[in-house]
Design a protein around this nucleic acid. Structure first.
Lengths: 214, 214
DNA sequence: GTCTATATCGGGATAGAC
DNA sequence: GTCTATCCCGATATAGAC
């Protein structure tokens, strides 16, 4: 079996390069989500990622390029859980799973949630196309599923758009407004007990609103 | 009756000064909420307020001072509606009124909502004291009302903190994530018909989650 | 209170050696 | 790929005349 040292230089360098890019993207996410695009400095990101400012600019030619790269990565994670909402499942189970998946994301990737939030709040000049295209189409597809359930009398009457938006609002709020939630309740999603109580509460609220009982 | 020209200079100047401060605060809110603290420039704010950069710095000695002044103003508006939640009202009516008041604020003061959101998402170094003090106390008082209603069997079982947080999350979301809501639904709170449907939907969701029927 | 001019600085980006 | 040195611009803030 070959040792790592035997790996051809070209390939090893490329792998290192990818790892370095990942490290930069991680550092950038941390600082952009905490300080905003203009509040974070390239130097600060570089320092956190363990390289020099000029060296960082070798990997990403400009600050904006880096920012867009981070944002793209975040968006990919973001669209994922809704995809799983399935017409064949029982409505209550499908919605409960979706709520749990979103809250899990808020717990495990709060920085991604916050960066997404910052970008949307400021008008999302970079993301608007993504929102009006793929996201809108995805929501439309899932709204159709909800309307189908409604037609079959399996859930109560409720505007599907508002339902989806409300689920987003609540689940993301626990990541984006974490400091406020913490100030008021003294706890956060990283506390397993609190996490489960939020999941249960949110599920109860949404299902109750649809006239379903968990 | 006296003409404005007869107003003593000192008084007139002071009144003009106050009006100018207001204009600056309005302009600052618009730009800070759209570009963030570091993204907005003093020059841009001055231009929007109709004076020169140096002149602005006569009224507010530094950019940060201005930012804090804007934030204080926003927070005052913010704490207001929850105060009105009253133990003597019928639970369903009190909650419906609160939801409508919050959504009205989201419709009429979206920039204030967004600036507040930006600040919280970034960790709210300036607001933390306000959150842990007055806000927490206020929430605790209102949570006690909800627990009282629960004890009397007038509402269903639901954690009061989660309920309040969920109402915040949904109602503010329509201001803060307006571009996303617009991308997905094609409409916003400024559309009266849409506004009323959001109010009705949110009320139904919350009351339904508490086992109440509107 | 308002203006012009200017000091000062941080930070993004480039040049070029190694 | 990484470094040192440097350029350059935008932005905050100040000085001082009017």
């Amino acid at each position: 079996m070959q040792q790592p040292a035997n790996t051809p230089p070209a390939r090893r360098r490329r792998k290192d390069g990818q790892a370095r890019r990942e490290a930069i993207l991680d550092a950038a996410l941390a600082l952009f989500s905490g300080l905003g695009l203009h509040g974070a400095s390239v130097e600060g990101i570089a320092e956190r990622a363990g390289l020099s400012k000029t060296n960082l600019l070798y990997y990403f030619p400009s600050k904006e390029d880096l920012y867009v790269a981070v944002l793209r990565r975040v968006l990919d994670i973001w669209l994922d859980p809704l995809q799983a909402l399935d017409a064949d499942s029982a409505p209550a189970e499908a919605l409960k799973d979706y709520i749990r998946a979103k809250l899990t994301l808020s717990r495990d990737a709060p920085q991604a949630s916050r960066l997404f939030c910052l970008e949307i709040v400021q008008g999302a000049p970079l993301l608007r196309a993504e929102l009006e295209g793929p996201l809108r189409a995805l929501v439309e597809a899932k709204a159709a599923i909800l309307r189908g359930w409604r037609a079959e009398g399996r859930i109560g009457a409720h505007d599907p758009h508002h339902l989806i938006v409300s689920i987003w609002a609540i689940t993301q709020h626990y990541a984006d407004f974490a400091v406020q939630v913490n100030a008021v309740t003294g706890r956060g999603l990283d506390d397993p007990e609190f996490f489960e109580s939020v999941v249960a509460s949110t599920q109860a609220l949404i299902l109750g609103g649809l006239g379903l009982r968990p």
